[in-house]
Amino acid sequence: MNIFRLCGDMSHLAAIIILLLKMWKTRSVAGISGKSQILFATVFTARYLDLFTSFISIYNTCMKVFFIGTVYFTIYLIYMKFKATYDSNHDSFRVEFLIVPVGGLAFLVNHEFAPLEIIWTFSIYLESVAILPQLFMISKTGEAETITSHYLFALGSYRALYLCNWIYRYYAEGFFDLIAVVAGVVQTILYCDFFYLYITKVMKGKKISLPA
């Protein structure tokens, strides 16, 4: 563990907590893409299959349980509890255009042609594009609530911090995982446009409103 990875995990944790607070306090899921949350649930389920087979640390196990638990709770809030406030018309990204290519790529490019390894690779590739339905929804509605912007900033920062973690681990431990790094770079790049809007607008107290 290093400071970059710890900050990354804390940023990820913060993002999930911000999202839950937004939904619980406003009792609304307006502006939140249920499809992205379903993709995140798929990512965590696929990645944490080893939750019961390989023990890394208490921290690792607790975080995995928390991430899986909260993402399914988020889906429950979106599609059941606060279903009336879910804006399905604007959440229209065709996720099959993500899942099929990512699934195919996981078969072709992986570290080892073994079931668990291919599923892990699938979760890494899927995570790098899982935010697209959410960003697409914001571009369609033309604006994002400030709390949603904070959620996205924390979520985008988590993988950017992981990139720093991988640089550190390369020099400190000689650890290098090309698949995770490439997917992490793609994932972080997808947020750049949003990061620019967040820093130039939200930091000055303005709302994010894209030219619709």
């Binding site: 990820h12 080893d50 690792n60 570290h111 080892e112 992981y162």
Partner: peptide, 10 residues
Amino acid sequence: DEFVPRHDEL
């Protein structure tokens, strides 16, 4: 064969 990194990250 190629070293398969143990996935110790979240």
